[in-house]
Structures are given as structure tokens and as C-alpha cells.
Simulated assay, not measured.
Amino acid sequence: MTDKTERDARMPVMASRRQFVLGTAALMACAAMPFPSFAATSAAQQIADHFSSVRTMMGEFVQFGPRGEQTGGKFFIERPGKLRFNYEKPSPMRVISDGKNVVIGNTKLKTWDLYPLNKTPLSLLLSERIDLGNQMVRDVKQEADLTTIVLGDRTIFGDSTITLMFDPKSFELRQWTITDVQKKDTSVMIFNVQNGVQFDPSVFEIPYAEVHGQKRGG
């Protein structure tokens, strides 16, 4: 019974690692892409300017997987280049960017996946300046209480799409949803967000000894 409980608890973590990286990048990827019309492009620039002005932020998130599984945790961001996502127990998952690399780790199993930051969409999220250079916006819906943006680009996200939902007045992100090639959705909601927070440098430290030790051992 215990083994089954632990296995079930790990399922959303292990099954959604790639989706999580894409979803985290989507947190600000929308601010890096123009909308189809001039008016929409102007709105996108306002969102980009808002995100660029936020140097640090932290908060909580809840993630809903395609099978209905649910998990949550806390996130921390410091521009440029630094990010951390901690899933709450019993999930052992961690996502850390130190400005050069990004790791996705399972602290219980001692497994780590390492990626250069500049080779991931997270570089958009964490950049000093958000560039509105590429054509990725597929749809924009502006309502009284919500602005919804759908992004897709095969060169970065493959056949997946990302739907982001913003407060139209504050430009703050409320939720994003990743739709994969099989049309399955993974959604992340964020709340209790605080800006202008000071972090200890250790928050964004990658345990390189463990990462490289794992590779030598494997």
C-alpha cells in the first residue's frame, strides 16, 4: 500500500516534466511575442513592460494534470536568469535555474536533468529585456475580467500550444495551460504572488556535485 501511494504521488511529477518546463516558460513567453494586429501588439508591449519591471517575485501554484491529478508548491523568480519551483510534499520535484543552466530534479531518487538556459524557452521568461520579435500568437481574447493569449510555434514548442490568462488591468498572470500533441491539458494556477522580494543566493544554487556525480555513476 505504501509503495502504491508513493508511486501514485510521483506520477504527475514524472509524467509532466517536459510540460512543466514549457509551462514555466510560458509564464512570460507571451510577453516576448507580438499579437496579429497593431492594437493587440500595443497591448502585448504593455504586458512585456510590466513583466520587465518586475525584478523579483514569489508565490504559490497549483498544477492540474491531464488525468485530473493535482499538486502544488512555491515558485521564486529573480531577473535575470534565476528561477526555482518547489513542489510540496510528497512530491520531490525541483526546478532550478541559476542564470546559466536549468535543472529538473527528483530529490528522492537523486535524478537530475540539466539544460543550458539559453537553449530553453525559460530564457525568455528570465531575460533582462523581453523581446517582442517573433510571430507565435495564435489567438487573443480580451474580456472585461480576463485577457487570454494562445501561443504556438513548432520550432520551440513542437505541436503543443500554451494558453495564458491575465488580469487585464494589472497585467498579472493568473493561469496557463499546456495542450500537448495528443490534446491533453496541464494547467497551472498561481496566487499569493509577491513582487520585490529579496532572496538568499542559495535559493537559486544548483547542486552540481550531485548532477555530475549522477552522470559519472550512470
Score class of each variant (00 low, 15 high):
residue 123 S to I: 05
residue 121 P to C: 03
residue 153 D to I: 08
residue 142 Q to E: 12
residue 110 K to P: 01
residue 112 W to A: 01
residue 43 A to T: 08
residue 217 G to Q: 14
residue 153 D to Q: 15
residue 9 A to K: 12
residue 72 G to Q: 09
residue 211 V to N: 08
residue 160 S to I: 03
residue 143 E to I: 10
residue 129 R to C: 00
residue 129 R to Q: 05
residue 80 P to I: 02
residue 60 E to Q: 14
residue 129 R to A: 03
residue 160 S to D: 15
residue 122 L to W: 02
residue 15 A to L: 10
residue 146 L to P: 02
residue 119 K to E: 14
residue 182 Q to G: 07
residue 160 S to P: 05
residue 183 K to C: 01
residue 65 G to K: 09
residue 164 L to Y: 01
residue 32 A to S: 15
residue 89 K to N: 07
residue 212 H to M: 13
residue 131 D to T: 05
residue 59 G to K: 05
residue 160 S to K: 08
residue 106 N to T: 04
residue 218 G to A: 14
residue 25 A to Y: 04
residue 53 S to R: 11
residue 119 K to L: 13
residue 200 D to E: 12
residue 6 E to R: 08
residue 39 A to D: 15
residue 181 V to R: 13
residue 9 A to L: 06
residue 193 V to C: 00
residue 27 L to T: 09
residue 145 D to V: 13
residue 166 F to E: 07
residue 120 T to A: 02
residue 201 P to D: 12
residue 110 K to Q: 08
residue 139 D to Y: 05
residue 210 E to T: 02
residue 204 F to H: 08
residue 107 T to A: 03
residue 42 S to A: 12
residue 55 R to C: 04
residue 74 K to A: 14
residue 156 I to W: 12
residue 157 F to N: 10
residue 128 E to G: 06
residue 142 Q to A: 11
residue 159 D to P: 01
residue 20 F to S: 11
residue 166 F to C: 06
residue 102 V to N: 07
residue 126 L to M: 06
residue 110 K to I: 02
residue 9 A to F: 05
residue 76 F to M: 07
residue 52 S to V: 00
residue 174 R to M: 13
residue 6 E to N: 06
residue 73 G to E: 05
residue 76 F to W: 06
residue 123 S to W: 00
residue 199 F to A: 07
residue 77 I to Y: 15
residue 168 P to H: 08
residue 34 P to F: 03
residue 194 Q to R: 14
residue 104 I to R: 04
residue 141 K to Y: 03
residue 45 Q to H: 09
residue 143 E to D: 15
residue 138 R to G: 07
residue 63 Q to D: 02
residue 125 L to Q: 07
residue 56 T to G: 08
residue 85 F to E: 01
residue 104 I to E: 09
residue 151 L to D: 05
residue 118 N to H: 09
residue 205 E to F: 02
residue 152 G to W: 06
residue 47 I to Y: 05
residue 125 L to G: 03
residue 158 G to H: 08
residue 155 T to E: 15
residue 199 F to S: 05
residue 15 A to G: 04
residue 29 A to H: 15
residue 102 V to T: 12
residue 126 L to W: 06
residue 173 L to Q: 14
residue 177 T to E: 07
residue 70 Q to A: 12
residue 63 Q to E: 11
residue 28 M to W: 14
residue 75 F to M: 13
residue 14 M to P: 00
residue 3 D to S: 02
residue 71 T to N: 08
residue 191 F to N: 07
residue 102 V to I: 14
residue 68 G to C: 13
residue 127 S to Q: 04
residue 190 I to F: 01
residue 170 S to T: 15
residue 113 D to G: 02
residue 91 S to T: 09
residue 88 E to S: 15
residue 169 K to Y: 15
residue 197 V to R: 08
residue 162 I to Q: 10
residue 204 F to V: 08
residue 13 V to L: 10
residue 89 K to G: 04
residue 142 Q to K: 10
residue 106 N to R: 03
residue 191 F to K: 11
residue 213 G to C: 07
residue 214 Q to I: 03
residue 70 Q to Y: 06
residue 186 T to D: 01
residue 44 A to E: 04
residue 149 I to Y: 12
residue 141 K to M: 07
residue 76 F to R: 05
residue 24 T to K: 02
residue 123 S to A: 13
residue 209 A to P: 01
residue 197 V to D: 11
residue 99 G to N: 10
residue 53 S to E: 06
residue 123 S to K: 14
residue 120 T to E: 04
residue 8 D to W: 00
residue 22 L to N: 09
